[in-house]
Design a binder for these strands. Structure first.
Lengths: 218, 218
DNA sequence: TCCGAAACATACCATACGGTTGGTATGTAG
DNA sequence: CTACATACCAACCGTATGGTATGTTTCGGA
């Protein structure tokens, strides 16, 4: 049973605070450069609490990757891009939704599991696998709509829905890297625009159909 | 004047060996997780040699990013994809060339400066800027051919050559992440295939023109 | 042949790191 | 009220780390 801490009883239990803090700190500094003390400070707990909930630092890495998978899948499941009847419109609305998420500070919109994958792919298989499950699990949710769109629009494609779904994730991940290189989220949005143009081209639709615009109004 | 070491007199001077070792070790383990001792071991030198050539670990980070920029630009400058007369064929040949480079172990084909950007973008501006210069400097070499192709083929585009050049780098970087997540280079090649299909679509050419195939014959 | 600087190697230091230990407050079941 | 598990805290430990101080080798030039 989680119990609130004396210092901050309103912020939830220590384990959740550690995961939320880790999510943000690791996106700023990376996994290896983030010390256990950093993680404890971001959560407002001591190392005793940390190692009570996680046996090792790597164990937190796995846990925060799973935490990321759960929270993002909940976000996407409740997002409005599922509304259109045409599955192609849902795919395009998804991409527009993703584009709208790219806003604010770098650590706010970049992908935790993409970042961690880069770092630990060769040294921490458990973390890498958890990250991969998050990435490809999300891609699978998109694959459904892509395949439905392919059938509904009678596209005789030389590509698979699976590969296109993965490609969307690759474009997003790559866009994040360019954005990090300059600190400018426009570079990530720019690649999403190219991706949208590509998908439209695959399905033979023009640059302006009538899907809802989900971009932030800022 | 560089001097060969007793242990390995044939492998060149210590500074170059440190840069070459850093290039490979950092691509495996990441920058933060790579210790100075790791770097010294990979080069077969001691810490005295390391700190004689580089004041700090971060200074090596900047140096290895510049080293990467120099060596890769030399590789691409001498690559055969510049041969076609049609600039569009050069662009497509470039993408085919990049696809052919994706082979072997993960650390052999992934991008050093993309990896380092992810890690240090918020904590080591000097390294980040050196990485950004490498990425966007390379993209600029591609931009020339794209712009020439756009004019030659009379494309009235709603995209710029600059943005498309950056997008190619984003796709490659994103493909590397997916490849790292699974250890399978096919995932990176798959995204390049989508990118090639996109570029063909932008210029209205079919799936099979006659550019040379630069893929490795392995 | 001698010298001095460049190019390393060796030994060492202070600190930060991941992890451990012992203890304490709180909740809960009987 | 007892007994015990959960959830956390404070202090500590051994080691690895980035960095330094100093010694040693190599080599071109006077």
């Amino acid at each position: 049973m989680p119990r609130p801490t004396k210092q901050s009883p309103e912020r939830g239990d220590a384990r959740t605070r550690l995961l939320e803090g880790a999510r943000d700190v690791i996106r700023r500094k990376g996994f290896a450069a983030t010390s256990v003390d950093d993680l404890c400070q971001s959560a407002g707990v001591t190392k005793g609490a940390f190692f009570y909930h996680f046996n090792t630092k790597d164990a937190l890495g796995v846990a925060v990757a799973n935490f990321w998978a759960e929270t993002t899948s909940a976000l996407f499941a409740s997002a409005p891009y599922h509304e259109p009847d045409d599955p192609l419109d849902r795919v395009l609305a998804y991409l527009d939704f993703r584009k709208g998420l790219i806003d604010g500070e770098t650590f706010e919109y970049t992908c935790l599991v993409g970042t961690m994958t880069q770092e630990v792919h060769d040294s921490a298989p458990a973390i890498r696998d958890a990250c991969a499950a998050s990435i490809f699990g999300h891609a699978a949710t998109l694959e459904t709509d892509i395949e439905a769109a392919r059938k509904q629009h009678n596209i005789d494609a030389d590509w698979t829905a699976e590969s296109l779904a993965r490609h969307t994730q690759a474009v997003l991940q790559g866009g994040f890297i360019l954005a990090k290189a300059t600190g400018d989220p426009d570079l990530a949005r720019e690649s999403v625009d190219h991706l949208i143009r590509y998908v439209r081209g695959l399905f033979g639709v023009g640059p302006n159909t009538s899907e809802t615009n989900y971009e932030k109004s800022s």
